[in-house]
Nucleic acid binder design. Structure first.
Lengths: 117, 117
DNA sequence: GCTCTATATAAGGATTGACTTATATAAGCT
DNA sequence: AGCTTATATAAGTCAATCCTTATATAGAGC
């Protein structure tokens, strides 16, 4: 399953958001998701499985509890894919950057001219 | 359709990638996608519709041609959503930043102590 | 006006995905 | 050992998604 397919589901996105604040047990995630989405425990468990299988989350056992945490690698991949589009909304900044660079060159040139006089 | 659902499809992602280099007609996009994915013209047209409807692409008519271009707004939304996770892979940089700040404070303190002697 | 080309829409079928209920597994407690 | 709690898996259903073929729309050129 591709990273974007995993993120295509609102429940899975929400689980990841919940995990931003730190690791959580399957149980507490399930409680939160059930409250928000009204789905069953197995439904949540299946989403957790997808997150595990796709590498978005890691698990650790502690007694009978399963403790989930974010695994950032696939999210980073998504971030990398977005990179190619970022200039669309960084245009101003890009322009500003080149403008500043040009300005610096200009100023340097002017200074040199003054010195030459 | 949520932004992530739109990006869940590999054909649609590819179309957006093709549009990064600038606007293109429906026809040239169709040719490229057909070569890569082996799907029919209507299939590509339907993906273009999804991209239009979800705001990822805009269209302009030029005679019988339809010229598509990227509309960055929804991609930016995705970027914003990712923001909350970015500290996971910027940890080093974050740490470096705070470390540098701490170092600066330390150095200033040391300098003051030296001066006091 | 007819025909060709570029593109979109309609209708239908197959696959996939996200639920449900029922059940399995295994740790903890008495 | 038996019961309870935490979590996962199994099996089945329903709806959504993506494709196909067939067809509609409309500009261009003869």
């Amino acid at each position: 399953m591709h990273a974007f397919d995993v993120l295509g589901d609102p429940v899975r996105r929400r689980i990841l958001e919940l995990l931003v604040d730190g690791e959580q047990t399957s149980g507490s995630l399930t409680t939160a998701i059930q409250a928000e989405f009204g789905i069953s425990q197995p439904a949540v468990s299946q989403h957790l499985r997808v997150l595990r299988d796709s590498g978005f989350a890691s698990v650790r056992a502690e007694g009978v509890r399963r403790i989930y945490l974010v695994n950032p690698a696939p999210l980073r991949e998504v971030d990398v894919w977005l990179e190619q589009f970022r200039h669309f909304w960084n245009q101003h900044l890009d322009a500003l950057a080149t403008e500043l660079a040009r300005g610096k060159r200009e100023r340097r040139k002017t200074t040199e001219e003054k010195r030459a006089k």
